[in-house]
């Protein structure tokens, strides 16, 4: 589904990604872990097409197409979804209007008929229940005045509504208490299926107790320095990033 090959990227003059290689197949859950500043969020942003990053080398192929050639809205319509670390407040635009526009624009792009208001209402009702969302949030402006937990929950709710093929969760656990973490994780787990892949970007292994990954990759200084199964995350939890960092340094010398 997703092939990242030798990806190099920078912001202004600062090189952040220095040769990422990653293969994600449908149904898989990959965790990308790493210390602060390792390039995790940059990778998530580049997948979604956030402006401000320059890809200097390498490629990203998504379902056979060049992802880097697509603008953000096309990526969304093709099935890429980024759950933001810091969801943006948009005063004046109601959650419902926003989601309906987003869904219908993506459907239009894919040549599917737009959903009428009753169809849309039916579509979101089940998702609201699934996420345990307070339905009054729907008529409020997007994320405006939402608590940290409500914002993250709203991200996963949007993901449920838009039904993407590839879900990228950027530090979705940050700022969540344990109860909110459970709700958000349950939402993500409910969306797991054989056709859908998930990339979980996180600093801590805590989230991975709830969203259990098939693969764990450790990102340091813009490269994946180690890959393994979920036990790698547990090892990081015990030992911290320092041990791997030292091993990587030793190997390089």
């Amino acid at each position: 589904m997703l092939t990242i090959h030798n990806l190099h990227a920078r912001v202004e003059d600062k090189e952040i990604l220095r040769g990422i290689n990653l293969e994600v197949k449908p149904g898989e859950v990959h965790a990308i872990m790493g210390p602060n500043g390792s390039g995790k969020s940059t990778l998530a942003s580049i997948l979604a097409g956030k402006p401000g990053y320059e890809v200097t080398e390498g490629s990203i192929t998504f379902n056979g197409e060049d992802l880097l050639e697509m603008d953000p809205e096309t990526r969304a319509a093709e099935g890429v979804f980024l759950a933001f670390q810091y969801p943006v407040e948009i005063p004046g635009v109601s959650n419902t209007y926003f989601l309906r526009t987003a869904l219908n624009q993506s459907r239009k792009h894919r040549g599917e008929p737009e959903l009428t208001m009753p169809e849309f209402t039916r579509h979101i009702r089940s998702k609201v229940e699934m996420m345990g969302l307070d339905s009054s949030l729907l008529s409020r402006a997007v994320n405006e005045g939402f608590s940290g937990g409500e914002k993250k929950r709203n991200e996963i709710f949007q993901m449920a509504v838009l039904e993407p093929k590839l879900c990228v969760l950027d530090e979705t656990d940050s700022g969540l208490d344990i109860d909110a973490l459970k709700v958000v994780s349950a939402g993500v787990n409910a969306l797991r299926n054989p056709d859908r892949a998930v990339i979980v970007v996180t600093h801590y292994q805590r989230l991975l107790n709830y969203i259990v990954p098939d693969f764990v990759h450790v990102l340091m200084e813009g490269r994946i320095v180690r890959s393994g199964d979920r036990t790698l995350a547990l090892q990081l939890e015990d030992e911290g990033y320092g041990v791997i960092e030292a091993e990587v340094l030793a190997a390089a010398n």
Binding site: G49, P72, P87, V88, G92, L103, Q105, H109
Partner: peptide, 27 residues
């Protein structure tokens, strides 16, 4: 950031801009 947020959900740039401008004033 608001523009990118809307686009990342599938709303084309032109429409996302219009929506944000409208929301700003309609408030």
């Amino acid at each position: 950031d608001a523009l990118f947020y809307l686009r990342s959900r599938g709303i084309p740039e032109k429409q996302a801009r219009a929506l944000l401008i409208y929301a700003f004033a309609a408030d």
